[in-house]
Amino acid sequence: MGHRVEPGLYQIGNPTAESPVLASANYTLSFDALRSALAGFDAYILVLDTNGINVWCAAGKGTFGTGELASRIETTGLAGIVTHRKIIVPQLGAPGISALEVQRRSGFRVEYGPVRASDLPEYLRTGKATSEMRRVQFPVRDRIVLAPVELVHVALPAIVIAAVLWFLAGPVAALAAIAAVFAGTVLFPVLLPFIPTRDFSTKGLLLGGVVAIPFAAAFASGSALPGWAALIAAITPLLIMPAVTAYLALNFTGSTTFTSRTGVKKEIFRYVPVMTFMAVSGIILGIVLGVTRLLGVI
């Protein structure tokens, strides 16, 4: 992996024995964000070994943790390099760090810095993080950055399914598959705060439903079907597409900055059965439609 920094103690500027010490993860982007935020300051950066994972994720897993921090302070001989006994830990490292335990083991007092490295200059000047600096946000910029990652993750199965649908049901059906996946992986993250309801699954069902409407209309009006068949043709995308979009939307929970495990679990038990029912019944309807057409009934 090319995203790792060697763990240890690094210098920024020309630090003295009184300069602040800031802890970071050995993930390149974390380290670089910290380094550029500290430009012009004299400081030490204590890089912990988090297997190249960013601070928040690593803290959740415990690799950015009490034990690693205490032992890294020990192995770098930090106590002999600085005269003070204070280490500034990024706030999002707190899920892995027991400040009390670090102090007991290493003698260093943990102070939690701001969430974002960009607030560090102000924090270092004033010695205090404002409540604004302590809040995690999830702005549109961050959500857009995630969209390609989500899309790439499901791109291959989506393309395969679209190709199969093209053969079985034509290009509009293939496009419907792509649209449902695109809605769940790209539109959903971007529109997240604007879609009604709080649950990701219901947001996804609504978004998928809206995206499915033109396809339902196209299927119903196409190829001069009798009334009942046109109805089935319209219902099929309205069942399958929202289910797909909602499932992808639910899977976006882990990428966000605010979903609790209790809530996500509740969502899984509440809505995955609904999604499954919708998808399965939609597929059955689609097959019925295809078979009747093959048999020349319509």
């Binding site: 964000a33 960013n54 928040w56 994720c57 959740g60 990024p90 995630l146 882990g254 990428s255 900055t257």
Partner: peptide
């Protein structure tokens, strides 16, 4: 991929 500010 992300910086500190993003979640898992």
């Amino acid at each position: 991929v992300q910086e500190e500010k993003s979640s898992c």
